[in-house]
Design a protein around this nucleic acid. Sequence first.
DNA 1: CTATAACACCTAAGAGTTTTATGTATCTTT
DNA 2: AAAGATACATAAAACTCTTAGGTGTTATAG
Lengths: 114, 114
Amino acid sequence: MYSKELLKGTLQTIILKLLAENDRMYGYEITQKVKDLSDGKINLTEGALYPALHKLEATGLLSTEKVYIGKRVRKYYSLTVTGADTATNKVTEFSNFMETMKIILNLEPKMNDL
Amino acid sequence: MYSKELLKGTLQTIILKLLAENDRMYGYEITQKVKDLSDGKINLTEGALYPALHKLEATGLLSTEKVYIGKRVRKYYSLTVTGADTATNKVTEFSNFMETMKIILNLEPKMNDL
DNA sequence: CTATAACACCTAAGAGTTTTATGTATCTTT
DNA sequence: AAAGATACATAAAACTCTTAGGTGTTATAG
């Protein structure tokens, strides 16, 4: 598990990107997918995830549909058109940010630095 | 300028790493260095930086010395032994975190994905 | 020579996100 | 029958950062 601070600010980007690749997903599924992809190192808490999903829906980036599995409710989220745009932008921005951080933290140092 | 959220959680790591490479730096110098290295894309605000420096000093990761330049005061910060350890750990952790994020955000996709 | 910008420190209220804690309920496995 | 996994949700508290102030010095441009 990574220290909590690192994850800050990445939640929206993660949600949007997963939905860009999966058409529709529900909350619990997202937590499991992230746990899988991160090899258990990132565990989204429900207290953070659900409010984030609600906010993305409220701002028009996500739409929802409820599906009943027996008596249990699942709430599927999908990207809206705006949401798809935002997903692309957020991922690009994050990618650029990582490049900048590599420079600042002097990661990938050049041969002649060694 | 990157959206504010991304920077969250990276400030301590940035400070510690810069001091790992520069022996001693003062607050204003750190803001300028980060601006330089990031090509103007990251501007640390003083309202965030100074409290962060004070906190790192209070927790024993940094030590200080005041230097007078004419009548103006500069407060130089240096890593303590513990601070140097923490710097290494934080940078490593951040580096690992970036690798995980690459997977989640599906950056650097493989040939056969294209 | 004086006003503006740069240098250099600082704090505090508020905004925003996440953690922690809690609640409800269904389904599956032991 | 109990425990754990599935599935949603909210609310108080913690934490970090932004915004918005404040003080004072030095250099530069008009």
